[in-house]
Amino acid sequence: MSSQELSRAAVDVQVATRAAGESGAVYEVTLARLYLDKAREEWGYNRYRTSLAYARSARQHAREAEERVRQADGRRRGGR
C-alpha cells in the first residue's frame, strides 16, 4: 500500500475541519481526526493493512462531517 490513502484522508479531514468551523459537526470531525492519527501511527509501525482501514474510516467520518454541516446550513437558510 502506498501512502496515498493516508494523504487523501488527511486532505478530507482538513476540508471537513474547515467546513465545520469551530462549532459544527464536532463529533464527526473529532472521529475523523482521531482515526487519521491512528492511521498514521499504524503506518509508523509498518502495519499497513490496519493503517489503510483507519484511513478509510477517517475519510468516511470526514464525509459525514461535511454532510452534517451542509444539512445544518440548509436548515438555517430555510429558517430565514
Binding site: 464536532v26 463529533y27 464527526e28 473529532t30 482515526y35
Partner: peptide
C-alpha cells in the same frame, strides 16, 4: 445526551479509543 449537550468531542474520543 452528549450530542444534545455539547459533549460531542468527549463522546467521539471515547468511541474512537474504544474501537482502537
Amino acid at each position: 445526551a452528549a450530542m444534545r449537550c455539547d459533549m460531542e468531542y468527549e463522546q467521539a474520543s471515547a468511541e474512537a479509543n474504544l474501537v482502537f
